[in-house]
């Protein structure tokens, strides 16, 4: 097995681990972290493929593609993190509102359904621990 095949296999496994993390985690930030892991694994695959070239220096085109990918990757990561933060804030606010409305009276389940019209839509079972 040549060196590039070794690194391509390694990158493939690395990418697979990242994809598994993306699918298996429910936490947004963990998902974003997993996407970054998968992306780096894919970069290793591309850099390994660049080494297939029979010329002494590796193929520069995949290298340039990886450089572009890294920068696009951090742009997407930063945007995704700020959207996740905003969502977390909105959800926290909604939960606080809910607590403020429901805590003093501790209404029965039926009251929830009736109050559902005017309150913010509850985050589909978000409060219920698994």
């Amino acid at each position: 097995m040549s060196a590039w095949q070794l690194y391509a296999l390694s990158g493939l496994a690395w990418f697979g681990v990242g994809m598994w993390g993306l699918f298996a985690h429910a936490h947004w930030v963990r998902k974003i972290l997993a996407v970054n892991v998968a992306g780096s694994g894919l970069f290793l695959v591309l850099a390994a493929l660049a080494r297939r070239a029979t010329t002494p220096a590796p193929d520069p085109v995949p290298h340039a593609l990886v450089l572009t990918g890294i920068v696009v990757g951090i742009s997407a990561t930063a945007l995704a993190l700020s959207v996740a933060r905003r969502l977390a804030e909105v959800e926290a606010t909604a939960r606080l509102d809910e607590d403020a409305t429901h805590e003093p009276a501790a209404p029965p389940a039926g009251a929830d359904a009736r109050a559902g019209g005017d309150a913010a839509p509850p985050p589909a079972g978000g409060g219920a621990p698994p």
């Binding site: 070794l6 690194y7 296999l9 390694s10 990158g11 496994a13 690395w14 697979g16 681990v17 990242g18 598994w20 993390g21 298996a24 985690h25 963990r30 972290l33 997993a34 892991v37 780096s40 694994g41 290793l44």
Partner: peptide, 13 residues
């Protein structure tokens, strides 16, 4: 390196 990198990636995830 080829062995350590996926293992570290698994540790991250």
């Amino acid at each position: 390196l080829a062995l350590v990198l996926p293992v570290l990636a698994w540790a991250v995830v």
